[in-house]
Every structure is written in structure tokens, then in C-alpha cells.
């Protein structure tokens, strides 16, 4: 599936305004996810217009309405399928056009991802490859296009939602974890490349967040509301952070898990 642009009445404001400060947009990829949704609100609250990209057009339209009513900011929707090669190639350019030109697209938040069923993925090469395609390959393709945009623009921010699962391979989620680890390394390299320009490249590593992905899973503790996570992501961008663990204590949890000697680690069911 390719990319389709849905225009909204709010887009008229941008061209009609005289002497208005330059409006800037943030592109959210996978905007229907709970974390993405609240990240969108956090950016709208800070005065950004939004371009909401995803597969569920009806849901995106509702999210866009919500942003307009709550924050009085512009919100556009963009049909985007992370696994479609044409979407991967054209989404960013479409977003630039919706934003009203390269100058106006200030940042991108890559929030699509799929946890999948690890017990199946451990034995099903088809599923394992699929999870890597969604969580890693698709992200790399889109971010590669985005990186050139920000490099030539000379400022802006790139955010990708990774996972604490990428910090150490564990029997309970290593396929998903491997893809997220790859994404983290890719982001690390991108950060290195774009640092001279002052472009923020932020990897978000959520622990347990109360979303569709975790709902009903056993063994969850201290689960964070997605609204708090969205707010922290926008704040981390303002503070030009590189890696954000949410909730913050997951940095310590993962440090301990990474440092566990293998002999002990292998005796756990982590």
C-alpha cells in the first residue's frame, strides 16, 4: 500500500496567516499507538502542528480532531504502512509537503512497533523475520530518508521508540529485543553523524507502559501511564537527551540485568 494524503481544514490556516510565526510540524509514525498519541499531545501543547501517520485512517482522523480541539493546533493525517516499500520511501516527503516545506518539518517520532509472540517467534522463522522487518528494517529505511532531511535542514530532532528489551537478549523476548537493539545502534550512529549540527537523536526505552502491547500480560509492575511517557519524551527532546528510559528507574533495572553474570542469568526466567 502506498501513501495517501488526507488534508484537513486546519491546513488552510498555515497559508492564510500573515505575520504569524513560522509554524513547525512534528511527524509521528505509528500515531495510533498509545505512547505516540500522548507524545502527539505533548508536542501540540508545546506549539507544534502534527502530522499523524499510520494505517488506521479512521483512528488517525479522530486523533487529529482531538489534537485540534484540545490544543487548537493543526493536525494532518497521512496513510502510512511501515511494511510497504513505497510508504517507507514516500512518507517523509509527503510529510514535508503537508508541513508546508522542508523548513517547517521540525521533527519525527518513530513509534510503530510490534511485540509479537516470542514463544512462536522462537521456532517460526517467518514470524521472526516479520518482527525484525517491522521493528528494525522498516525503521532503518524511514529514518535513512529522515536523516538526510535533517542534515540539510541543519536542525530538528529524531526520536525512535526502542525498548528495554534491546539491552540484553533474554529468552522471553529476544526476537523483538534484537530488532530494538539494532534500532538503538542505528540511532547511536545517526546521533554520532548528526551531532555536529546539533540535531537531537533520541532513543526512548520504555519499560512497562499501560498500552495495548502490555495489556493483560502477567508479571507487570509499576506500570507507567502513556500520558506521562508522552510528556517525558517531549521534555527529553527539549533537553536534547540521547537515551531516555521511561520510567527512569528502568535504567537501573537494565543496568543490573546487563551486569548479571551469565551463570546467574541462565538460572533466571527473565
Amino acid at each position: 500500500m502506498g501513501t495517501t494524503i488526507h488534508s484537513s481544514p486546519a491546513s488552510a490556516d498555515r497559508t492564510g496567516a500573515v505575520n504569524a510565526p513560522a509554524r513547525e510540524s512534528v511527524l509521528i509514525l505509528g500515531a495510533s499507538s498509545s505512547i505516540a498519541r500522548w507524545t502527539a499531545h505533548a508536542f501540540a501543547r508545546r506549539g507544534y502542528d502534527l502530522i499523524l501517520a499510520g494505517r488506521d485512517d479512521d483512528d488517525l482522523a479522530r486523533l487529529a480532531s482531538d489534537v485540534r480541539v484540545r490544543h487548537n493546533m493543526g493536525a494532518e493525517t497521512l496513510h502510512f504502512d511501515a511494511l510497504s516499500v513505497s510508504s517507507q520511501a514516500t512518507a517523509f516527503g509527503d510529510a514535508v509537503r503537508l508541513a508546508g516545506g522542508a523548513e517547517h518539518l521540525a521533527g519525527v517520532v518513530l513509534a510503530f512497533g510490534l511485540l509479537g509472540d516470542q514463544r512462536r517467534a522462537a521456532h517460526d522463522s517467518e514470524l521472526a523475520g516479520y518482527l525484525v522487518d517491522v521493528n528494525f528494517t522498516a525503521a532503518v529505511r524511514v529514518l535513512t530518508v529522515a536523516s538526510d532531511h535533517f542534515e540539510s535542514r541543519g536542525r530538528g530532532f529524531i526520536v525512535a521508540v526502542g525498548s528495554v528489551a534491546g539491552d540484553r537478549g533474554r529468552q522471553s523476548n529476544y526476537v523483538y529485543g534484537a530488532a530494538k537493539a539494532g534500532l538503538a545502534v542505528f540511532m547511536q550512529g545517526l546521533r554520532h553523524r548528526l551531532a555536529p549540527m546539533g540535531i537531537t537523536v533520541l532513543t526512548v526505552k520504555p519499560g512497562f507502559v499501560d498500552t495495548q502491547m502490555t495489556f493483560g500480560h502477567p508479571g507487570l509492575f509499576l506500570v507507567a501511564p502513556p500520558s506521562a511517557v508522552g510528556e517525558q519524551i517531549a521534555r527529553a527532546v527539549e533537553e536534547q537527551r540521547s537515551v531516555l528510559y521511561v520510567p527512569a528507574f528502568w535504567r537501573i533495572v537494565m543496568l543490573i540485568i546487563r551486569l548479571l553474570p551469565q551463570r546467574i542469568f541462565h538460572r533466571t526466567r527473565l
Partner: peptide
């Protein structure tokens, strides 16, 4: 509770459409 989006508000009439 997650079905909580505002869809449209008309400040002249006070009519709100939401989830």
C-alpha cells in the same frame, strides 16, 4: 476509558462531539 477523544466543538452553540 481510552475511548476519550474530543472530535468537534462549536463555541457558538456549546455543542461538543466526543468519544
Amino acid at each position: 476509558e481510552r475511548l476519550d477523544r474530543f472530535l468537534q466543538f462549536d463555541a457558538r452553540t456549546g455543542v461538543l462531539e466526543c468519544e
